[in-house]
Write a protein that binds this DNA or RNA. Structure first.
Lengths: 188, 188
DNA sequence: TCCTTTGGATAGATTTGCCTATCTTATCTT
DNA sequence: AAGATAAGATAGGCAAATCTATCCAAAGGA
């Protein structure tokens, strides 16, 4: 019956349990006991690794961020590249985004992290590649590409997620790209 | 020394204290004791009016929402109308928006309220007037006015607030209106 | 196989916040 | 001026969560 987890495997199980607990109950209802119970272990196991609740939350967020890398698509068209990225974000990061913005007010003040850092795929430059390629293909007018416009579809996606707390329907993604983003970069 | 507050004045003072407490510490750290102390009164005074913490939070939000009405401007140009609305929101509702989105996860589940309802000035139709007038003046192409595009500047403003937790600089507001919104409704 | 390391169970001390009971005192009404 | 009403102080019971002390048991290494 024993079959005990140890070391890294145990640590991952604890952080996963903490993450589930965070998304289920939010920061307000987040208790060490609940994490212990969800992970099927006992308090000292938790306290040996993280001295208090805040340390555990920070480690949990860091752990999830590490695993949340998104790689940049290359479909051959800007429309599909942007939509692919948006769909990827939409399907994998809704919990992360809502949690970070909705539940973790205190987290920011301590760490200096900003929620903005959560969406740019692979840092702030990762997304630039798809615009460079689109410009080389002649799909867009490069002079239209301000930082704001490059960020626009992702900002709007993030906004939808933050206001609805749910994944965004695919036709909304297409509406954003086709009626807002593309007209701006193609110049009508 | 006494000079006791009573009735409506006391109630307002309590709700204001609760509001300050909410924005200062967030929902997680929001305690009845802290509100009592901040208001300079004692527990029974609070509990005679609101049976528990959740009721107080709900009453506080309702109280703030009541006082947060924004009226629709009529400057003669769409650009100024939109900018005026955005500036008004920017200067009066940053705390409200961040709090509602960042701290009050539990509030929504109970009340069914959605954060989206916080920005549309005077309900969802209030803002429509400025677009009607702009169309009558011939400033814009009415067929461009989808719901999404009408909401666009306000969605982007809300997004900025949610990501930075601070008022948005005026030049950012102008950038949004001049490089994103107006090109879309004027058709280039 | 022995022994060191580490996971896990249990119980409890401590803190903190919720909420109530009781009493005093100010203010309003008549 | 007297009585009714409501504010405010104080104290405390209760519940829940934090964190620790102590012990036992399993896994891995020598």
């Amino acid at each position: 019956m024993p079959e005990r987890r140890r070391g890294a495997a145990l640590e991952k199980a604890l952080l996963d349990a903490a993450w589930d607990e965070l998304t289920a109950t939010g920061y307000a209802g987040f208790t060490m006991d609940a994490v212990v119970q969800r992970a099927g272990t006992s308090p000292p196991v938790l306290y040996r690794r993280w001295p208090d609740r805040d340390a555990l939350v920070r480690a949990t967020v860091a752990h999830v961020l590490e695993q949340a890398r998104i790689d940049v698509p290359d479909t051959g068209s800007l429309r599909e590249d942007v939509l692919t990225l948006m769909r990827e974000i939409n399907s994998t990061r809704v919990r992360l985004i809502t949690l970070m913005n909705v539940h973790l007010a205190g987290y920011y003040q301590e760490t200096g992290t900003r929620p903005g850092e959560l969406l740019s795929p692979g840092g702030d430059d990762g997304g630039d590649v798809i615009f460079q390629r689109a410009a080389e293909r002649g799909e867009i007018r490069p002079e239209r590409l301000t930082e704001r416009i490059k960020a626009l579809p992702f900002d709007l996606l993030r906004h939808e997620i933050l206001v609805t707390f749910a994944p965004v329907p695919d036709d909304v993604l297409e509406e954003i790209v086709d009626t807002v983003f593309l007209p701006l970069v193609r110049g009508q």
